[in-house]
Amino acid sequence: MTALPEHLRRATRARTEEAGKRARAALAELAKAGKSISFTAVARRAGVSTDFLYRSPELRTRIERHRAKAGPTPTRSAGSSDGRSTSAAVRALSARLTRQQQEHRAAVESLRKALQVAQGENLELRRRLARYEA
């Protein structure tokens, strides 16, 4: 792997520093407004990824400290009437997973029955063989 040229390293560093400034400003805005502070809320407000926040030790510590001060955050129920609580992608993947689970259960049941039949045939053949050997 080749090293990045110096001008690309400077640009990356500047972009990272700018994202950090935006995240710190977003955190301060949320705290000042008394709004719920979470990695997702800060990321949305700052226009950065949650991964960026988690990988930045300083920002991660600040967000966790603010969350600890605020206490437990209220959770939404799974059947919330708010359509935004569960994205369409999550619902589609959940439906797909449910279908696959049903298919796998049916396949396992079919294999279980086939195994029972095979074991019965095996037992019958062993009994016949025992009669011939005796």
Rank of each mutant, 00 (worst) to 15 (best):
M1I: 03
T2Y: 06
L4A: 09
P5T: 01
P5D: 05
E6S: 13
E6C: 06
L8V: 12
A11E: 15
R13C: 08
A14T: 03
E17S: 12
G20V: 04
K21N: 11
K21V: 14
A23R: 02
A23E: 10
A23M: 12
R24V: 04
A26M: 02
A31Y: 01
K32S: 12
K32F: 03
I37V: 15
I37E: 03
S38D: 00
S38V: 04
S38F: 02
S38H: 01
A41H: 08
A41D: 08
A41N: 02
A43V: 04
A43G: 01
A43R: 02
R45Q: 13
A46H: 02
G47Q: 12
V48M: 03
V48W: 00
S49W: 04
F52G: 08
F52T: 01
Y54W: 15
P57W: 13
E58Q: 09
T61M: 14
T61Q: 15
I63H: 02
E64Q: 10
R65S: 11
R65P: 02
H66P: 05
R67Y: 01
A68P: 07
A68E: 15
K69V: 12
A70S: 06
T73L: 08
G79V: 00
S85C: 13
T86G: 06
S87W: 05
A88M: 06
A88N: 09
T98M: 01
R99Q: 06
R99S: 08
Q101F: 10
Q101A: 11
Q101S: 07
A106Q: 08
A106C: 09
V108R: 13
S110A: 14
L111Q: 15
L111C: 10
L111N: 11
K113R: 15
L115Y: 03
A118C: 13
A118N: 14
Q119D: 12
Q119T: 02
N122P: 04
E124Y: 14
L125S: 10
R126C: 09
R127Q: 13
R127M: 07
R128I: 02
A130F: 15
R131E: 15
R131P: 01
Y132N: 00
